[in-house]
């Protein structure tokens, strides 16, 4: 009985030191804020890059246009995918923005967005390629030009098909922002490290931060599942038409 009480007192004590003492929850909330800002910014930038690149590649494949841009995109994708994201982040921080006083969070958004753009581009490319060629021809034969056919017919279907993979990519990205502490950004993982160095106890800060990451990514994948299900009630373009 006595040891049981002792255990709970210790748990509470640790929790107090990790979260409440010296307003450490403010540190955690600030870390959460920075992680979210960086993730959301990078998701937006990465998705935009991904969609644009996938459209350039599709245009090249179907119409033979934008040959040079297509080549640039391919180079970008292979370089980004072939090097670690932490290295990309450090290159942008220490080399490209060496002399400027830009907010490190912006650098985080740029680095993770540019990184995610390469993976998103591949996801959207395969989404576009999953649409039967007959859809494009049907659009053209009705008098739509190529861009309008993409806009009204191909993209809506391709984006829907890309949802599961793009959700995975977003989750990967959120977790990868945990290396941003290397360039001094106070994101969640960095915060856990700082708190641990003050309490001399790693267990609680790490577990608490892990739970926060898990809740974010879990919520995201639940939202995506819901959207997918909603779209599936209406149509199912995996079936051949």
């Amino acid at each position: 009985m006595e040891s049981f009480a002792k255990f709970w007192i210790e748990v509470f004590d640790n929790f107090y030191k990790t979260v409440i003492f010296e307003q450490r929850y403010e540190l955690i909330l600030n870390g959460l804020k920075n992680t979210l800002i960086m993730s959301i910014g990078a998701i937006i930038l990465g998705s935009l890059l991904g969609i644009i690149i996938s459209l350039i590649k599709h245009n090249y494949k179907i119409n033979g246009k934008m040959k040079i841009l297509n080549k640039i995109c391919n180079t970008y994708i292979s370089i980004i995918r072939g090097t670690p994201v932490l290295l990309q982040l450090m290159i942008i921080y220490y080399i490209i923005f060496k002399t400027s006083t830009i907010n490190p969070i912006i650098i985080g958004i740029l680095a993770f967005g540019i990184n995610s753009g390469a993976y998103s581009a591949e996801i959207f490319r395969s989404g576009l390629e999953s649409i039967d060629k007959g859809q494009l021809e049907a659009g053209l034969s009705l008098g739509f030009n190529y861009p309008k056919t993409m806009k009204y017919i191909i993209l809506p279907q391709a984006l829907k098909n890309s949802l599961p993979s793009i959700c995975n990519e977003f989750i990967t990205l959120i977790k990868e922002t945990s290396v941003a502490g290397y360039i001094g950004i106070m994101e969640l993982t960095k915060v856990s490290d700082i708190i641990a160095s003050k309490t001399y106890n790693y267990f609680f800060p790490l577990i608490i931060i892990a739970v926060i990451y898990f809740l974010i990514t879990n919520l995201l994948s639940k939202i995506f599942k819901k959207v997918e299900r909603k779209l599936d009630i209406n149509d199912n373009n995996k079936e051949s038409i």
Binding site: E137, A138, S141, L142, Q157, N237, E239
Partner: peptide, 12 residues
């Protein structure tokens, strides 16, 4: 206009 053999309706 063209009516395709596989119709190619827009599933969405």
């Amino acid at each position: 206009g063209m009516v395709f053999q596989s119709y190619n309706l827009f599933p969405h």
